[in-house]
Write a protein that binds this DNA or RNA. Structure first.
Length: 278
DNA sequence: CACGAGTCCTGCAGGC
DNA sequence: TGCCTGCAGGACTCGT
């Protein structure tokens, strides 16, 4: 499940190999991946001939900045990009879109769950795209506005886990890094936003940055099937609570518990992360 | 307005 | 071996 660190890893990898390449042809095997334009032929017509100028990221969205347009790609659960210099290399049934470049190389989009999406917008027009325009602050932004975040958290009764998963409040976090950020800051996932103190929220943001930056450094987590096209990340070996149900907490040894919060599997240490006393 | 449930998808684990 | 069920979940839609 690619989150900010995984998407950033993919972005960096793509930047190294496809910037400067010109799209010669596109094959679409599963049209539902393409949200806009709805017509697949139109999608191809728009993009063929354009050159990839840079690769950006906003939250969990990848941005391919082309000559005239920007291709916005969301990997959702299992989307991934595979780069190959050999166009004859076989592709499997989970490969849904293939971009062929004029130099013979290809970029292939593979997505077992078929949840991923692609949208074409006018160059740099992604800020107007539904889903991106309402995105909250980036936790690793050097200019992160802590006061604004505190206010947003403290006005909500919802559990902090749910607040952190809301991309309109803070963007880029998914289930894995929310659980780990809460564990590092010793906050119980069910604590209401309103119950958190200023110090706890400041500490939470620091923990979040620490977790995300370490994950980027490790090339992301390889959970289930995520892998960047140039290798597998190793952050999964450094996770504190996610996926460690029943295993000892690395701080106190208490077995990690798993509950459901906001419909999602939620991992925490019942000793280190105390529930609200209210 | 806010919240919960359902939806999209497939692979895999567990039960028998 | 193989069938069946349930689970995984990001973002969106729909209903209360």
């Amino acid at each position: 499940m690619p989150e900010l660190p995984e998407v950033e890893t993919v972005r960096r990898g793509l930047e190294l190999v496809i910037v400067g390449k010109k799209i010669k042809d596109i094959q679409v095997y599963y049209p539902k991946i393409i949200r806009s334009p709805q017509d697949t032929e139109q999608f191809k017509f728009l993009l063929i001939g354009q050159v990839i100028q840079s690769i950006g990221r906003r939250g969990k969205y990848l941005l391919f900045h082309l000559t005239d347009d920007t291709l916005v790609s969301h990997l959702r659960m299992e989307g991934k990009y595979i780069y190959t210099e050999n166009p004859n290399e076989p592709y499997d049934k989970h490969t849904h879109v293939i971009f062929s470049f004029t130099d013979g190389s290809q970029l292939r989009y593979r997505d077992v769950r078929k949840f991923g999406t692609m949208d074409v917008v006018k160059r740099d027009g992604e800020t107007e795209l539904e889903g991106i325009k309402k995105l909250g602050q980036e936790p690793i932004d050097p200019e992160f506005n802590l006061e604004r975040f505190k206010k947003q958290v403290k006005q909500r009764m919802a559990p902090i886990k749910q607040i952190l998963l809301n991309q309109e409040i803070i963007s880029g976090l998914g289930n894995i890094y929310v659980d780990d950020s809460l564990a590092l800051s010793k906050i119980h996932p069910l604590r209401s936003g309103k119950s958190l103190t200023d110090d706890e929220i400041a500490n939470l943001i620091m923990s979040m940055k620490q977790v995300l930056e370490k994950a980027i450094e490790k090339g992301g987590s390889t959970i289930r099937s995520f892998e960047s096209f140039y290798g597998r990340g190793s952050m999964q070996d450094h996770l504190i609570v996610y996926g460690r149900t029943g295993k000892p907490c690395i701080v106190c040894g208490t077995p990690i518990e798993k509950i459901r919060v906001a419909g999602r599997g939620t991992h925490f240490c019942p000793h280190c992360q105390k529930a609200a006393k209210e």
